[in-house]
Design a protein around this nucleic acid. Structure first.
Lengths: 350, 350
DNA sequence: TTGTAAGCGTTATCAT
DNA sequence: ATGATAACGCTTACAA
């Protein structure tokens, strides 16, 4: 038996001998319908297991009450917390959320954008790493006047709002913290997944060193040649492990390490332990993100916490505002503070 | 300035003086169009920044090349790994994936189903915890002949395929492992988020005890009264912590614990450490899922690993098959083996 | 309270 | 190689 075609409004209408419009009114609970007719319709609807066609409906209504969210690494708690916050805020305002995953390749970014835009979403939130082609497409989407908000990464467009944690400052403070502890040979692990200027955390690290007159040693900045493609989720851990190995083999290894994120930091910690060194006595380490992992490591990982929920909430609100106010809107731009969370991986606990 | 209306096929057509159909052919690369006309069209398309209307297109085509995935807890690596695997498989076959989050409440399940179905997705994959009302709606969706696959939970419907890890067996083996180590007072943490029969891991625990003639002590089964609503993501950890506290306050506390998942186990570990007890000497512990957390705990957490990627791949394939073959299909049902991963939380490392 | 007509933006189909 | 027409399933606006 082939898949049976679903009943339409017209089918219902002609079956019970009323106008399609009457059925529509009953189904949507709009306008006046006599109790008698209403019951007849409801019965038929149930009988024929009618299901309204959202495509047709939305085509006519010219809106979908749906927002799209494109996520890079869905395995990262950073992303999922944002997604949860976005969803909550949207739901409170009657909007649905469709999430698309793009594992950071330009093609996938574009695919995600297209599929979402194809469904005529009312707005788009983007939280992927930036890449040339993807950004180009995103720009053209913004040009076409679809409300867009970008989270946690750079993107400049007069009609696109932007919200991010202060990665520059976060990187600075993490490094500053290590300097304050007396370290001078401080390494950075996980550079180079993207252009250096776009990696604000690395920039913050460099700024802190510079401010304290510590010369930058390129050998202490690792990860530059790693390719991130086909890296599944949190296994940037591997990059941390290998980066640390390399650092340990230097003639004069670092006494402290700032890792681009917690997973990378965790990988580095493994390498340090494998080398028989202790944390933080031999090498201190700081991560970024404050994932659940961080607080459970041994020693617990000092890290920089991003206000994930707030990021998501703001992104949702900015977007809703753009959707509601159809007029030209000033670009809104928010940079939120991070918080350094000091734990045992940088300061020995008594 | 109000948001400008997007150009349509007709706009393009009338602007350059051809039929809409011609523009359509160019845009979709189907049928014959003279090079000259094509260029003219392409130019206009770019000029007017034309974007095809997917709603109208899909309404006409009667398909969307899109599959929906409803996820319960998106903060759980279990979910995200499945999502990644599903997405990959679908992408390889030209399908897009829209993910909806439902934090385990019936309303949200239904909302997610509805919003997805409203967009006329070609198929639906469901990976939420089961709940009465949600299941009812899901049943009616399946009745309406939309291809549906359910992952990692019960659901019976003649047209709905099913794939899951063997939670029963996993729970059994985890418990068996503890029994083999000589434990007799073994607790279970995290029962009761749903009906007991639906929590296969608990069932497996009970079966193992029974098999070895160990009497079931209800006081050792904890978590029954916890409500999971408004529990954000991985903070089932809290449930583990509190459950363990309660167990430790028993006249005769357990010597081993099986936790419903890794987060719960981690919470329990904290409680054990806080009580000044050591793992596994005083209390052994086993989790479930093998999240990244597990291998990094101190001691590392013994846990039961689910084949997440395989689950996702199979789900995608089952669904694609249902979509491709429009005829009635036998219900396909797969239960995949779990793997017990023994680490330091149950067996002291030498 | 109910019905009619038109159209949302495409594409399938047949015609030229 | 291009066009005309109808239809996808619904809702808006108006009429009865």
């Amino acid at each position: 038996m082939a898949r049976k075609k679903n009943a339409t409004l017209n089918d219902i209408a002609s079956t019970i001998g009323v106008a399609p419009m009457t059925v529509s009114r009953v189904v949507n609970g709009t306008g006046y319908v006599s109790e008698k007719t209403r019951e007849k319709v409801l019965l038929a609807v149930k009988e024929m297991s009618y299901r309204r066609n959202g495509l047709a409906r939305n085509l006519k209504r010219q809106k979908t009450d749906t927002v799209g969210l494109v996520l890079g690494d869905i395995s990262n708690p950073y992303s999922t917390e944002i997604a949860n916050a976005v969803r909550e805020r949207l739901a409170a305002r009657g909007y649905n959320l469709f999430i698309c995953i793009s594992e950071h390749s330009a093609n996938e970014d574009i695919g995600a954008f297209e599929s979402l835009v194809d469904h005529n979403i009312d707005g788009l939130i983007v939280a992927t790493r930036s890449n040339q082609e993807g950004d180009e497409r995103l720009r053209s989407i913004a040009d076409s006047n679809l409300p867009v908000v970008v989270v946690g990464r750079d993107f400049h467009h007069s009609r696109v709002d932007f919200v991010s944690a202060d990665n520059l400052r976060g990187g600075f403070e993490a490094t500053q913290h290590l300097i304050d502890l007396g370290h001078r040979r401080i390494a950075f692990i996980g550079a180079g997944f993207e252009s250096r200027s776009s990696l604000k955390r690395l920039q913050g690290y460099l700024n802190a060193l510079e401010k304290h007159g510590i010369e930058i040693d390129e050998r202490l900045i690792t990860g530059r040649k790693e390719s991130v493609s086909d890296v599944p989720g949190y296994s940037t851990e591997k990059i941390g492990y290998e980066g640390m190995k390399r650092l340990l083999s230097l003639p004069s290894p670092p006494t402290a390490v700032f890792a681009r994120n917690d997973f990378t930091a965790v990988g580095a910690m493994s390498a340090i332990k494998d080398a028989g060194l202790s944390i933080p006595q031999d090498i201190a380490i700081v991560g970024f993100d404050d994932t659940p992992l961080a607080s459970h490591m041994m020693p617990a990982l000092t890290t920089v916490r991003q206000p994930m929920r707030l990021l998501g909430q703001l992104a949702a609100e900015m977007l809703l505002k753009r959707i509601a106010i159809e007029d030209e809107l000033e670009r809104d731009e928010r940079v939120l503070d991070c918080e350094l969370i000091v734990r045992g991986s940088s300061v020995a606990t008594s």
